[in-house]
Simulated assay, not measured.
Amino acid sequence: MRFPRSSDPELLDVIDRYVKPTTNDIGRYLHLLHANFTRDDERERTAFLQSLRSAAQAITDEELEILLEGEWRSRLTAAWLIGVDRRQHFRDVLGDLLLASQLCFSGQGYCFALARFCTEEDALYLTAYLERYLQQPDCQYDQHWAISALLHIDSQAGTEHADRFLAPAGLWHQWNDAQFQPSPPSRFIDELCALADSPR
């Protein structure tokens, strides 16, 4: 995997077309960050989702690879596009990036994509992530996204991967209780996956 300079014209072109297209003067990546688009009114959300689906179908694998070599905005956007279009051949790349957790926020997209793929392999990546980072209370990374993604896979596949983390003395509660603002696990990725599949 090559790492282009921020001045790489190839990278900048793909960013301009897929990461920075604006809706109401807000770049696509800002709508995807924290799933901010879910807070839009229905008209704006519908327009954004239509644009996202179109981009997910139009972008090439090579362009996605370029974005995954960039900074967090590019990686976040690429992961969402991969997830929306369910390009499962990116599973190992996204799983490895999630486990590495090198850049802020991009892990949100990796968790969404793995939830969309919704297989045992995806659950194993999420499980490995939670095993590693729930044991690091000082790391407030994407644990909420990972547990929600794992809960989604469990609900769809009839598995129970999340149970051991959510047991009364499990790693989730140990990590969550150590946070400044503890919050319960949420199934919000169920909604995101449903929106990704909603009628055009």
Rank of each mutant, 00 (worst) to 15 (best):
56 A>E: 01
148 S>R: 02
93 V>A: 10
9 P>F: 08
109 G>H: 02
83 G>R: 07
187 R>L: 05
174 Q>N: 08
99 L>P: 01
61 D>F: 07
169 A>T: 13
197 D>M: 07
6 S>M: 11
32 L>K: 03
174 Q>F: 05
47 A>G: 07
21 P>F: 01
199 P>E: 12
36 N>P: 01
62 E>D: 15
50 Q>R: 13
60 T>G: 11
127 T>Q: 11
85 D>A: 15
80 W>E: 03
188 F>E: 08
157 A>G: 05
32 L>W: 04
86 R>Q: 14
167 A>M: 01
166 L>P: 01
118 C>G: 12
32 L>A: 05
98 L>T: 00
114 L>Q: 03
84 V>C: 05
2 R>N: 12
69 E>Y: 08
137 P>Y: 04
40 D>W: 09
6 S>A: 15
39 R>D: 10
145 W>D: 09
62 E>I: 07
4 P>M: 06
137 P>S: 07
105 F>W: 15
173 H>W: 14
139 C>E: 15
41 D>K: 14
106 S>T: 12
115 A>V: 09
83 G>K: 04
58 A>E: 14
20 K>W: 01
24 N>Q: 14
157 A>W: 11
9 P>Y: 05
39 R>I: 02
92 D>S: 05
173 H>E: 02
62 E>Y: 07
12 L>Y: 08
32 L>P: 00
31 H>N: 10
63 E>D: 14
111 C>T: 14
118 C>Y: 00
73 R>W: 02
108 Q>L: 06
122 D>F: 01
63 E>N: 09
43 R>F: 09
137 P>T: 06
130 L>M: 10
71 E>G: 04
31 H>F: 14
25 D>N: 14
114 L>E: 02
35 A>Y: 12
10 E>A: 13
153 I>C: 02
27 G>W: 14
11 L>R: 05
55 A>S: 13
150 L>R: 04
174 Q>K: 12
140 Q>N: 12
64 L>F: 08
36 N>E: 08
190 D>T: 05
58 A>I: 03
112 F>W: 13
178 A>K: 04
60 T>E: 08
70 G>A: 05
19 V>T: 04
150 L>E: 02
78 A>D: 09
5 R>Q: 10
153 I>G: 03
184 P>A: 15
